[in-house]
């Protein structure tokens, strides 16, 4: 055993000092000596972790770029790739949605099959559970997801569409609504209460595992 540690073990104990009391429980000499060693090993651990992370990222279908691009910027780029019509669509539907719809309005909308409902949350959350009949249009993969529904959507750019995300605090539905409007869709509303309000009211759920 190193001399310092041995000395620490034989130091006299002073009962009225809390520090000394703590020293009786934890061997701080040994601790400080080892913190440096553990910090160095932590650095090695982190290097290994980051190394694995970069390798895994390179093996992904769509690796993350080196520099982060905000959700808004990614969405703008995706919208720019998708051709938007030069002319504004004529209203072909007799239903003109407000900018935001309530839970009751959404239920009525779904019941009467007035248009399409889109879930702007991530694909994983959508698979766990979503509003029955809603389609996944995740902000994170907007371009690819949009292409899946492009034919159906472009049949009528004035058809009523409702977008929702997690709750009133999430911005995904607003961003997707804005992107759809930029793509020429004139009748897009948000269900602000989102998935949380739907669940809180004990309404039926659909999941795709």
């Amino acid at each position: 055993m190193p001399i310092l540690e041995e000395l620490a073990d034989h130091l006299p104990l002073v009962r009225d000092s809390s520090r000394k009391k703590l020293n009786r429980v934890v061997n701080f000499r040994s601790l400080w000596k080892n913190v440096a060693k553990h910090s160095f090993q932590t650095l090695i651990l982190a290097t290994a972790g980051f190394g694995v992370g970069f390798t895994v990222n390179q093996l992904r279908d769509k690796p993350l770029p080196l520099v982060y691009e905000s959700k808004e910027l990614r969405l703008e780029k995706a919208v720019a790739h998708l051709a938007a019509p030069k002319q504004q669509p004529k209203a072909t539907s007799d239903i003109l949605l407000p900018q935001r719809v309530t839970l009751e309005q959404l239920q009525q909308f779904i019941k009467e099959k007035r248009g399409l409902v889109f879930d702007a949350r991530s694909g994983r959350l959508y698979r766990f559970g979503h509003i029955p009949g809603a389609f996944s249009l995740p902000l994170a993969d907007f371009e690819n997801a949009y292409k899946r529904y492009q034919t159906e959507l472009e049949r009528d750019r004035a058809q009523p569409l409702i977008v929702y995300c997690s709750n009133a605090h999430c911005a995904y539905s607003t961003l997707v609504q804005k992107s759809l409007q930029e793509l020429g869709y004139s009748n897009v509303a948000i269900f602000a209460g989102g998935w949380s309000e739907w669940q809180e009211n004990g309404l039926p759920e659909e999941s795709k595992q």
Partner: peptide, 19 residues
């Protein structure tokens, strides 16, 4: 800064798993 966000997003999860 934006230049560090993706580096952390790729490196931090395996570090957490290893630890």
């Amino acid at each position: 800064p934006d230049s560090t966000i993706n580096v952390l997003a790729t490196g931090l999860p395996p570090t957490e798993i290893l630890a």
